[in-house]
Design a protein around this nucleic acid. Structure first.
Lengths: 207, 207
DNA sequence: TGTACATCAGTGAACGCGCGTTCACTGATGTAC
DNA sequence: TGTACATCAGTGAACGCGCGTTCACTGATGTAC
């Protein structure tokens, strides 16, 4: 059948999006081309009309997931009064909802270890998205020395990524919950100290 | 040929150890049984004399890697004067040497994401090893409230794991180095602050 | 001491299977006349 | 307006290949007599 307008591009996007969910759940090597196409409601034969290789789809799917997270953070960063925004972001990320739903969650805890074994171009792509995330966090931090804010933002993301990875890896239970709590308290507590001079006390409560 | 004494057990250990290095480098699904046996200088036919399945070897290899890290931490924890030990551990972990040598490094940045998709029994095994690592870090922290020390130790590990994962995933460069630096400064700075005022309020304490 | 047999860690061919990829084909719709 | 042909996103059989796993076999050494 012949299709109208940007049907082809829409299908391409649909494959990328559903693959992005599937791969965050099952890992970068966790689904076959047949399964990835099935997720988009298609059969595998048409795959190479859309992508040069399986690896190319994985790359696009990771980029999609990272963009999704960046957009989410942008929204959260623009939602509340200045003092709350950093903690809103942290609490949103270090939540049991996020831990229990890798499918719609951040690509970093799910796929960064795979990217670490991937090609330099994949790694550069991830790096630029990560820089975007750092930028958002920097803007949401009380601006003192820019360099110090960057350091805090960077390590906050590392703590968040590590906490989600570990909380998923140990399975449901006290330890898993404790890892999320510890991350939330430490990251927020750290900021609290920095902010105490400017803003007043704040809780680490959920949004 | 017939072998003497505990030859069989020695071979088993050799397979586990070499697999542990290979899998940390290539991921839990990154090497075939043929390749894993070749790492131990054997052919694949004898594999099932030693293991019930490929997954069983992966489990033993991860446990071996975790034990190796626990032993390393125990040694570092007993080496220096009290005040330095925490920072020694952190600097050892958040080093470019560690980042660039996943093969001999901690299993958590390399394999935790895979364990997150593995069986509950695998996850329980990892959890108990992680608790050991937390225990060592707690002992090395200036002992105040035990609960608070546990929280700090837990989030410190999360920061370290996340920093190594991300620093590997973005590829060699300024960002990668910056991630390690940020992690080191934040984790050590946090402790430094705690030590300076001893028991001052962290304020973001959870219910 | 010498000979026949038992042991069993390790070998390598072979198994069925699912993988990524290719390709001839389909068929609804657009275009030409 | 009606007919013939072109287009091309999507289909499904087929490809070679490497995977995890199985199994009959090897052969150096231990044991029995």
């Amino acid at each position: 059948m012949r299709y109208v307008g940007d049907h082809r591009r829409q299908t391409h996007s649909r494959i990328v999006e559903s693959a992005s969910y599937g791969l965050r759940q099952n890992g970068a090597e966790g689904l076959s081309v047949v399964e990835l196409m099935k997720l988009a409601g298609l059969t595998h034969g048409g795959f190479y009309n859309h992508f040069e290789s399986r690896a190319a789809l994985v790359g696009e799917a990771i980029a999609f997931a990272m963009d999704q997270m960046v957009e989410r953070w942008k929204k959260l960063a623009n939602r509340r009064a200045s003092g709350d925004r950093f903690e809103t972001l942290i609490a949103d990320y270090l939540s049991s909802r996020h831990r229990d739903n890798p499918r719609q969650g951040c690509a970093l805890p799910a796929l960064a270890a795979d990217v670490a074994r991937s090609s330099p171009s994949e790694q550069r792509a991830l790096a630029s998205k990560l820089e975007e995330m750092i930028d958002i966090l920097v803007e949401v931090l009380p601006a003192e020395g820019l360099q110090q804010a960057r350091q805090i933002a960077t390590s906050a993301i590392a703590t968040m990524v590590g906490s989600i990875v570990l909380s998923r890896a140990v399975g449901a239970g006290k330890l898993s919950d404790g890892i999320l709590d510890a991350g939330r308290m430490t990251v927020c507590g750290r900021t609290y100290k920095r902010q105490r001079r400017t803003a007043k006390a704040m809780s680490c409560d959920k949004p």
